[in-house]
């Protein structure tokens, strides 16, 4: 299954990934980080298609994307 990991310590809470995700599966957390802000998280990982768009727009390289098989080939930009 494709999936993403968001490093909440790298995330600055800009919400650009939330805006960009075609599956609308990213939203802001309800709790704050140690530095004191809300961070992005995946609320519905099962619908992730591994498209990498969130990672592309993230200015802080806070998102890692995992994929395999066909999906990996499809999104080889």
């Amino acid at each position: 299954m494709p999936g993403i990991t968001i490093d909440k310590n790298q995330c600055k809470g800009c919400e650009l990934c939330v805006r960009a995700c075609p599956q609308h599966i990213i939203s802001m957390s309800k709790e704050i980080t140690v530095r004191g802000y809300f961070y992005a998280r995946v609320h519905d990982p099962s619908r992730c298609i591994g498209c990498r768009i969130c990672a592309l727009v993230c200015p802080d390289v806070a998102i890692e994307v995992h994929a395999h098989g066909l999906i990996f080939e499809l999104f080889e930009y």
């Binding site: 299954m1 494709p2 999936g3 591994g50 990498r52 990672a55 390289v61 998102i63 890692e64 994307v65 995992h66 994929a67 395999h68 098989g69 990996f72 999104f75």
Partner: peptide, 15 residues
Amino acid sequence: MAVDSKTVFDRPVTL
């Protein structure tokens, strides 16, 4: 996460 999945997007070494 599935065993055969790969990291396809990660921090570049230079950064």
